[in-house]
Design a binder for these strands. Structure first.
Length: 501
DNA sequence: TTTATGCAAATGTTT
DNA sequence: TAAACATTTGCATAA
């Protein structure tokens, strides 16, 4: 195992720039309990990698991994995975908000949530055969806040060491064994978007040293290796927990019961594929054997291309999950309700969302594509709100004075470009005019509904004239009546199909 | 008071 | 072009 804190990788993809980081413990170790040493040089404007200490709580053995894509100002969410160094067979998986003050180089963790799992052997490295028991039903809030002083590292040194680390991982069986554990040595890569200028920053020597997210087989091997290990642990712990995929839309071909296959979000252009679910399926035996192949010395082509796509999909899915959790945390800490957010977005973009939609976003109760579509707006909300608070406004003032109005509305093209960036890997993508106002939902009163249904029984496909007549008669817009008949026919067809099944 | 959810209105895509 | 088919979204209300 090398002495590397993190591995910055510049990822350039279609004009967008990512920073890829793999961390190990050594340069993250902290002499004092609770201290954390982020590597500020990894990303010029934000932290991207850090380790903290502790098991359960943030102490000397916790490794933080997989920073999400989401941030507002200096704020990040973070996942941690830590193991029990006292061999009491307890594993801990946590989430917290991470806020770094760039100027004075300090950071704060807050709103720390944890979920615990028992496993029945103290041997961490045998995890593949260890059944794990889900211990806590829900996240437990610890309300812990940890403040620390950041440590700055030389980026060139990090880059060099990290590349050595990757090479060693590829070469040495013993080191691979070590890495396959999921204790403090376990890390996952993470990435987030950077400005173009950052990519050319002097902190990084030459562009040629960067790994390309799409095309570097070597990089993908490492990413997949780490990610599989993590998944195999986590998935064991969520056995029996329902997927939280939009159960209303359960007629998709991708659905398997209430869960959906994650295959092919990053599909090739020939395939007409849908979105993955927001909770992933367990990996099957076949997949596992392929990944286990990666732990041999033959690491040239350990992963089939298909699997690479699958992991990319999972990364996308996970980035949404993490963002949703982070978004909720921040919304609550700002003191806004879901309804507030929906209204603010209306002020900001010209088209507001209901409390329902925000609620569903936070609970991952929307389709993946839908989540990806909404995400840029919620990111914008976080940024705008953060700025308003920085200017000294309170939540009350923001609400009463409609301060989200103050931000220039981005052009439709800009909004669409952002949505496109989110869902560009989804085939069948389409961006709708996001500024067009959705018609207010008509609330039909029972008499109107009865009247419509009576006429539907007489003729379920009325002509234009008949529709007009019905509309006049009931006192509704003819379009509303037309849509009602369409939806009613759709409902009937669905019922018939269901009966047939 | 806030959030979650069933049903279906409205919108988008394919046939 | 219209209808079928698919998906997004919000009202009303339960929790």
């Amino acid at each position: 195992m090398s002495d590397v804190a993190s591995c910055p990788e510049k990822i350039c993809e279609g004009g967008e720039y990512y920073n890829e980081v793999i961390g190990t413990q050594d340069l993250c170790e902290t002499p004092n309990q609770g201290n954390i040493s982020p590597t500020t040089e990894c990303t010029p404007s934000h932290f991207s990698s850090f380790c903290s200490s502790g098991f359960g709580d943030l102490d000397s053995t916790t490794t933080f991994a997989n920073l999400p894509l989401t941030y507002a100002g200096n704020s990040y969410g973070a996942w941690s995975l830590s193991t029990d160094t006292n061999q009491t067979n307890f594993n801990n998986y946590g989430y917290c908000n991470y806020i770094q003050e760039i100027d004075n180089n300090t950071g704060v963790y807050q709103n720390y949530y944890t979920q615990g799992y028992h496993y029945n052997t103290p041997s961490i490295n045998n995890y593949t055969d260890v059944p794990m028991t889900y211990v806590t039903e829900t996240y437990e809030e610890r309300s812990q806040t940890t403040t620390f002083q950041a440590t700055t590292l030389e980026s060139s040194q990090i880059l060099e060491n990290t590349c050595n680390q990757i090479t060693e991982y590829h070469r040495e069986d013993s080191q691979i064994e070590e890495l396959s554990g999921y204790d403090q040595r376990y890390n996952t890569p993470q990435y987030h978007m950077l400005e173009k200028e950052d990519c050319n920053s002097k902190n990084f020597t030459t562009k040629e040293q960067y790994y390309d997210f799409n095309y570097s087989q070597e990089m993908m091997e490492v990413i997949e290796f780490f990610r599989f290990n993590k998944k195999s642990i986590f998935e064991k712990s969520i056995q029996g927990i329902d997927c939280n995929y939009d159960s209303n839309n359960d007629n998709s071909n991708d659905n398997i019961g209430n869960c959906v296959s994650v295959n092919d979000l990053v599909g090739d252009d020939q395939e007409d594929v849908g979105c993955p679910p927001l909770k992933v399926q367990k990996m099957d035996t076949e997949d596992k054997s392929m990944v286990e192949g990666a732990t041999t010395t033959n690491l040239q082509i350990p992963f089939p291309q298909e699997l690479t796509k699958k992991f990319q999909n999972e990364m996308i899915v996970e980035s949404i999950e993490v963002f949703a959790a982070s978004f909720k945390n921040q919304r609550i800490s700002y003191g806004f309700t879901q309804g507030d957010v929906g209204r603010h977005i209306g002020l900001r973009f010209g088209n507001e969302f209901s409390q329902t939609t925000i609620s569903r976003f936070e609970a991952l109760n929307l389709s993946c594509k839908n989540m990806l579509k909404l995400k840029p707006k919620l990111e914008e909300w976080l940024i705008s709100t953060h700025q308003l608070f920085q200017q000294g406004y309170t939540a009350l003032e923001i609400n009463e004075n409609h301060l989200h109005n103050r931000f220039p509305k981005p052009s439709i093209a800009e909004q669409e470009a952002k949505q496109l960036a989110e869902i560009k890997k989804v085939k069948r993508q389409y961006i709708t005019d996001s500024s067009r106002k959705r018609r207010k939902r008509t609330n039909l009163v029972p008499e109107q509904r009865n009247s419509l249904y009576k006429r539907y029984l007489q003729n379920n496909r009325p002509s234009e004239e008949a529709l007009k007549e019905i509309a006049d008669d009931i006192g509704l817009d003819v379009n509303v009546v037309k849509i009602w008949f369409c939806n009613r026919r759709q409902k009937d067809r669905k019922c018939v199909k269901k009966d047939d099944a």
